[in-house]
Amino acid sequence: MAKAKIYITFKDGVLEPQGKTVNAALVKMGYKNIKDVRIGKYIEMEIDGNNEKIKKEVDEICDKLLANPNIEKYDFEII
């Protein structure tokens, strides 16, 4: 069995209000070096099959359900 670690974030250029609000708060608290904060989702999934098939399936799952390609992008690693 393999484990898929999936990271979903808003696409570059899409407004990300959560990150923006946290960023502003951090700067206000004195962390002046913070330049950008982006918040996303992290998903772990256990999955059976050979490596190639897993990659294909996870990719498909991300595209179909986990992320909305209109606004989100995803990345994953299989370990």
């Binding site: 250029g13 899409v14 407004l15 209000p17 923006k20 609000t21 390609p69 209109n70 606004i71």
Partner: peptide, 14 residues
């Protein structure tokens, strides 16, 4: 349906 950047993200706090 696939067109990019057509949907905006909402920021109700703003």
């Amino acid at each position: 349906q696939k067109r990019r950047s057509s949907v905006q993200v909402a920021d109700p706090f703003m």
